Amino acid sequence: MSSEDPEQRDRKSEVDMNPPKRLRTAESHTGTELEVEKSTVDVSIIMPVYNASCWLDECLQAIVDQDFTGSMELSVFDDASTDDSRKVVEGWREKLEARLISVVVSGHYSPKPRGVGFAKNKAISQSCGQYLCFQDADDIMLPQRIRLQYDACVLHQNSLIGCRVQRVPEGSTERYTRWINTLSQHQLITQVYTSHGPTVVMPTWFCSRKWYLKVGVFDEGGKGVPEDLLFFYQSLRQGGGLSRVDECLLVYRYHEKATTHSVTEETIWKLRVDFLQERVLSQWENFTIWNAGKQGRKLYRCLSPTNQKKVKAFCDVDENKIQKGFYTYEESKERPKPKIPILHYKVASAPFVICVKLDMTGGILEENLNSLQLKEGIDFYHFN
């Protein structure tokens, strides 16, 4: 047991929050020496770390192997790891600096981690790159990642830039991975309301520092807070764009310890409903909910009273639901209770909010939508 008293430990933790000076290897007339880096670099690799020692060697080797010829730094913030993550990172300092990648590492020794949002903000605040490349410690970037995303971001200064991914273990989250990799540029914007979350997935993000500062810092609520989705929505509110480099630039690891598992489905649901109402339903005079089943009815119940009144019908393909004729909102305090017609999708009218999950009906949903010659983003939006 440590002989330090609590105050001494707290002071040590606070001191450690201050990052060391940023160093890089530089050539001088007297040979190779370490100099304090005073100017900005082109790209800061932003890496929050929490108990990631088993993945760090692969992750850091991939950073060394980048073919980007501009200046880079690695900014790591250790969020109270209880393993030897920080020691592993420090063990790579010499190799990284030999590759002219400056390294800045800090963290804290509090009893509990402060969360991914906090760690990202700290890693960014101690960095100096004009552009930010977000890298999870358990993922592996391919050699061309920074070069290609940097080139894209220079052209799209106010956008979040993503890329295609390879999911490991192979076959894990197959439907989600297919969605990430096959969205069109148009769908990056139109499908931001689905249960999949950000259409440009956080582990692939690359953006300018100026845009990050304009959007604002990540939410620091800690465990259970979807800081990526909150930032993503705020970026869109600020008029930010979305773009994807259509090459696989990241090996995206799936495992049970991933922080995404701490966020509940209900938390995500509420944020999605609120954003849909703010961005889409506020612009529509009325609309149809496509799905008279559980998910469609749940969406209806979660809408504001104003938007509930805009629902002119549910539509479906299930004859049993259609034969019922209507859905009665039993929880309503209105008298008489609202009764919403249930129609066959062929006789229902746009615009639609689609509450059927994509890629789950063997192509039937997609065929039905195509048969009506509807345009995504105008005549319908996917919600589930």
Rank of each mutant, 00 (worst) to 15 (best):
residue 299 L to E: 02
residue 350 A to H: 04
residue 314 F to P: 13
residue 290 W to M: 03
residue 351 P to F: 05
residue 323 Q to N: 13
residue 347 V to G: 11
residue 330 E to F: 13
residue 329 Y to G: 01
residue 341 P to T: 12
residue 287 F to V: 05
residue 289 I to A: 00
residue 354 I to G: 02
residue 348 A to V: 04
residue 356 V to I: 15
residue 297 R to A: 03
residue 342 I to N: 09
residue 298 K to S: 06
residue 306 T to W: 02
residue 318 D to K: 15
residue 293 G to T: 09
residue 343 L to P: 08
residue 289 I to N: 00
residue 354 I to W: 03
residue 317 V to G: 03
residue 357 K to F: 10
residue 321 K to S: 09
residue 341 P to V: 09
residue 314 F to V: 13
residue 354 I to A: 04
residue 330 E to H: 15
residue 295 Q to L: 11
residue 327 Y to Q: 02
residue 361 T to K: 08
residue 336 P to C: 11
residue 324 K to M: 14
residue 329 Y to L: 08
residue 318 D to I: 15
residue 297 R to N: 04
residue 330 E to T: 15
residue 287 F to N: 03
residue 338 P to E: 06
residue 361 T to I: 09
residue 312 K to A: 05
residue 348 A to S: 14
residue 352 F to P: 04
residue 299 L to I: 04
residue 301 R to E: 10
residue 315 C to N: 06
residue 293 G to L: 06
residue 309 K to L: 01
residue 314 F to Q: 15
residue 294 K to N: 13
residue 300 Y to T: 00
residue 361 T to C: 03
residue 320 N to F: 06
residue 360 M to G: 13
residue 359 D to N: 14
residue 288 T to I: 02
residue 346 K to W: 06
residue 334 E to T: 09
residue 346 K to V: 10
residue 319 E to D: 09
residue 305 P to G: 00
residue 300 Y to C: 00
residue 313 A to E: 07
residue 306 T to D: 12
residue 329 Y to W: 15
residue 358 L to E: 15
residue 345 Y to N: 03
residue 298 K to M: 07
residue 334 E to S: 11
residue 290 W to Y: 11
residue 320 N to R: 13
residue 339 K to R: 14
residue 306 T to K: 10
residue 299 L to N: 03
residue 361 T to M: 07
residue 310 K to S: 01
residue 352 F to D: 05
residue 292 A to G: 13
residue 323 Q to L: 14
residue 319 E to T: 10
residue 337 K to A: 05
residue 350 A to T: 02
residue 289 I to E: 02
residue 354 I to F: 00
residue 332 S to M: 13
residue 331 E to W: 12
residue 336 P to T: 10
